[in-house]
Simulated scan of single mutants.
Amino acid sequence: MKTNVIYTAVIAVSIFFFLGCENENDINGIGNLVPKTVDQDSSLPSISVNGTQLHAEAFGNPNNPMLIFLHGGPGSDYRNGLNVQQLATDGYYVIFYDQRGSGLSKRHDKKSYSIQLVLDDLTEVIKHYRTSPEQKVFLFGHSWGAMLGTAYVNSYPDKINGLILAEPGGLNKKLLDEYGEMSRKIEIFSEVTSNLLYVDQFLTGKENQHEILDYKFGIATSFSYAKGNKEGIPGPSPFWRIGTTVLESFTDIAENDGFDFTTNLNQYTTKVLFLYGELNQSYGLNFAQKEAAYFPNAAIEEVKGTGHEMIYFKWENVHPIVMNYLNNLK
């Protein structure tokens, strides 16, 4: 589960003075702290499915095989995955969408989220864009998005014609905990933690105060690319807005209820492509093999010169591997 950020402590300081000026603005006001969501800004591209409004775009010929990109998080967005748009020139109909409560998609109450709900959303996204029953559908998931793609074929093994998984954080609770132990740890006295505590002095944020929570989490997540991080992330990658509430909701679900997206994977017999970054010390071939073992037919490929954020930083190395896989299934 991964989100990156371009906010810095400078922004926190500017907000401090912004709040203290004579013409004080409401920090809960729409668009004052973070970009507006699709239900707040009608100029953003969107679709309405399954009782929500999603930020979404499509590229390429609608009659070509469909490829849906599933971004990381939960709560991030597809902005740092837009290199995948190149597949539209390679003969695929490429779909991007910010998942429910994520990125620029509509926000919902924390208690409304469930795994089944986001699976249903994906079903409806496919229906919305599909032009014929014969049109093939491929999923390309990164990090949490790879977990979501796995959960989908675990529930619906006959609906997806191919699956690309770029470093899923863990296909069940045990593997997720194992990956978390090896990867992201916040040092209590780090600069990032200090920045977050500083912001806490004037931005508290209660449950479902989405503007404040999303702004705060945007600052906090810069630890993911801190110097010496084990996931091989060299710096920030772009995003629009963090969906903090959906992240907190799925974290609670994982901790309280657990999850297992592997229970029916033996029914998905199509070859699955696993990608892992050469520079990610937390994932590596060993972890990829553990996850791939749940599938009857899987291939594992190392992406050279990159870590977890391979799609943004080293798409030129990812692209030929993905094309080779897709063209063998097309």
Results as ranks from 00 to 15, higher is better:
Asn327Asp: 10
Phe261Tyr: 04
Leu175Val: 06
Ile11Asp: 05
Asn195Val: 01
Ser42Asn: 02
Thr193Tyr: 00
Asp214Ile: 13
Gly232Ile: 00
Ala293Pro: 05
Tyr215Asp: 08
Gly170Thr: 09
Thr204Asp: 12
Leu87Glu: 03
Ile115Met: 12
Lys304Ser: 11
Lys304His: 12
Trp240Val: 03
Ser190Asp: 02
Phe287Pro: 06
Leu104Thr: 08
Asn324Lys: 08
Pro45Phe: 03
Val118His: 08
Ile68Gly: 02
Val318Arg: 01
Thr150Val: 06
Ile300Gln: 01
Asn280Met: 04
Ala220Ile: 05
Glu255Pro: 14
Phe140Arg: 03
Ser43Lys: 06
Leu273Phe: 07
Gly232Ser: 04
Val5Lys: 04
Val199Glu: 00
Lys106Tyr: 06
Gly51Phe: 08
Lys159Arg: 15
Phe96Ser: 10
Gln135Asp: 15
Arg184Val: 11
Val318Tyr: 00
Gly145Phe: 06
Tyr97Pro: 04
Ala151Ser: 11
Asp41His: 01
Val94Ile: 13
Thr221Asp: 11
Leu247Met: 09
Gly305Asp: 07
Thr123Trp: 12
Lys216Gln: 05
Ser46Arg: 01
Asn25Thr: 15
Gln40Gly: 06
Thr8Leu: 00
Asp109Arg: 06
Ile6Ser: 11
Thr221Asn: 08
Gln99His: 06
Asn161Asp: 15
Gly162Phe: 09
Val49Asn: 01
Tyr7Leu: 07
Leu273Gly: 05
Ala12Thr: 00
Ile30Phe: 02
Ala299Trp: 04
Phe59Pro: 06
Tyr215Ser: 13
Phe217His: 05
Val13Phe: 06
Phe59Leu: 13
Gln267Ser: 14
Glu134Arg: 14
Tyr113Met: 09
Ile95Phe: 05
Tyr276Gln: 01
Ile242Glu: 12
Gln201Cys: 00
Glu248Met: 15
Ala56Met: 09
Trp240Pro: 06
Lys159Gln: 15
Tyr294His: 12
Ile47Trp: 08
Glu178Ala: 06
Lys185Trp: 03
Asn80Leu: 09
Trp144Val: 12
Pro45Met: 07
Thr52Ser: 03
Asn28Trp: 11
Thr269Asp: 09
Arg100Tyr: 01
Val272Phe: 10
Ile15Gln: 08
Phe274Asn: 02
His308Pro: 03
Glu316Gln: 14
Glu167Ser: 12
Lys106His: 04
Arg107Ile: 07
Tyr312Glu: 02
Lys106Trp: 05
Val125Phe: 07
Gly243Cys: 05
Thr269Arg: 12
Asn266Lys: 15
Phe313Asp: 01
Thr193Ser: 04
Ile27Tyr: 13
Gly228Asp: 02
Asn28Leu: 14
Lys230Ala: 08
Ile27Ala: 10
Ser282Val: 12
Thr263Glu: 07
Asp252Val: 15
Lys173Leu: 10
Asn50Ile: 13
Leu67Ser: 10
Gly235Val: 07
Glu207Met: 14
Val38Trp: 01
Val303Ala: 02
Lys314Asp: 09
Ala166Thr: 09
Ala12Val: 02
Ile15Tyr: 06
Asn25Met: 15
Gly232Asn: 01
Gly20Asp: 11
Lys290Ile: 02
His142Trp: 03
Gly218Pro: 02
Asn23Trp: 14
Ser76His: 08
Tyr294Ser: 07
Pro157Met: 10
Leu33Gly: 09
